[in-house]
Nucleic acid binder design. Sequence first.
DNA 1: AATCTCGATATGTTTTAGGTATGGGGCGAA
DNA 2: TTCGCCCCATACCTAAAACATATCGAGATT
Lengths: 298, 298
Amino acid sequence: MELRHIRYFLAVAEERHFTRAAQRLGIGQPPLSHQIKDLEREVGTPLFHRIPQGAELTEAGRAFEAGVRQIPGLVGEAVVAAQRAAAGETGRIRVGFTGSAAFNPRVPQAIRIYRRRFPDVELSLAEHNSIGLVEGLKNGSLDAAFLRPDAVDKQGLRLFHLADEPLIAALASARMPHGEPIRLEQLAEDAFILTPRALGPTLFDATLEACRRAGFEAILGQSAPQVASVLALVAAELGVALVPESMRDASFRGVTYHDLTGNAPKVALALATRNDEQAATVAAFVAEARFPSEAEPG
Amino acid sequence: MELRHIRYFLAVAEERHFTRAAQRLGIGQPPLSHQIKDLEREVGTPLFHRIPQGAELTEAGRAFEAGVRQIPGLVGEAVVAAQRAAAGETGRIRVGFTGSAAFNPRVPQAIRIYRRRFPDVELSLAEHNSIGLVEGLKNGSLDAAFLRPDAVDKQGLRLFHLADEPLIAALASARMPHGEPIRLEQLAEDAFILTPRALGPTLFDATLEACRRAGFEAILGQSAPQVASVLALVAAELGVALVPESMRDASFRGVTYHDLTGNAPKVALALATRNDEQAATVAAFVAEARFPSEAEPG
DNA sequence: AATCTCGATATGTTTTAGGTATGGGGCGAA
DNA sequence: TTCGCCCCATACCTAAAACATATCGAGATT
């Protein structure tokens, strides 16, 4: 049995007339009669009473109709669902981000607007360090990741550059007035709080390189796994830290931020995907992150 | 799109492998690839990622699968439903009966056993006079009817003879000892309670003919629309009545039944259907009424 | 580097859907 | 009652398409 038989059967059942049903189907009456007969042979029983005025359903025909009536609609819905999924309007996307990337306003904004434009896409978020993000992309547990790209393994990944952020100094509040710029050399005697290089090499390398360019070798203090804990250690006066500028929006009790004078070191913010990524959901997400749409409603 | 495309798609989706799916489907791999490609062209998007190990669903493919997975099962169920309906195991049957026929034990027994054997057939019952039953059969509002056939219009109907019942006399209790036989001539001076001939001619004609054969012309008393009301009038001592023997099982306060001596008049009990009836439910019902199955369980 | 696996492509054959012409039965009008 | 119309079934033919066989090419594995 094929969908054709079902469509033809339903047409005859509705028209109660072979000739009219054939016209509606755009075929001749003889092939329609033939197909219905094939169907009846396969089901094993007549589905129509042929009467002089046309045809009417047998009891078996009524039972069959009740069973197959919805099928053409189901097929159509399945096609539409597939097309919507292909257009990235349904499905899912798993997005990762590093602790520091989450504070750049472009990251939450991209997520917010994407969810608004594609409300039927199931979006899940996960915070990891850079190494974990790259691993997640490669093993398929993540589809896209906001990260600091400079020092990660780019093999098999596609990186979309989103922003360059100057680093700023995070000091314990007692050190100097809030907001006042600072020269990096002033921190030559301070311990630097850093995340372990194995977890997130970019900020680690950028900090040491900046100090080197300022004429001194940074003193390494405590290490902390995430940006938030770095700031906690700074607040506890265990040392100082260089953080991306966007961290300024996240005020942290006991920590003051200070621009670095001179040409401040910069770290990049990028969005990474697998370079063989094909999902339309991911493509749409990348597009939104790279080229934010005009404005958010409301 | 045809069911073939859906079946092939589901096979590949399940096997994640074109060649294995083709083997399972009993066709070659090239035509399977071709059909899947046709389907993808019609849907407008790829449904599988071709990978060196076989194939895996795209997001669109997953959405499509969710929509069509149930369809082959639905088709199978529809076929089974049609076959069951053709076998008379589902559907409906509308059975009518006259007031007097309902008291013959074969009638309720046939209905009871039929319902037990075909519990999924919707059976509706309606009591009418003979004229109403015949009209119901002819206009399609009834499928079968238990009635007294002798004097009805048999045009377009098929009658199955079930029983010949002797008539017995129904008298007011005061008249004579319960159960004692009576000669019809003893009722020559009594008024006969009858249903109007226009509603049920058989018992009417049988009664008058019996009296005529016994040598007198029956005196017509009150008329009553149904057997039960006839007995009520008898109990009220407004006259006597001849009723089918099976009425004896329905004792009625104030009425005694008496066999008629000599060769008692008889009325037939029959089951009527349209003579162009084709429904399997009706055929099964007729079979059960004509040839009762062995015994009722329990 | 060689081989193996797996899907895609090319080509021919066979099945089958659909078109055209015609037959046959039943109903209604004359 | 007969003629004519309506409707589905049958017969036959054509054209499309499903499937088989043979082969290719890409990618992975050894």
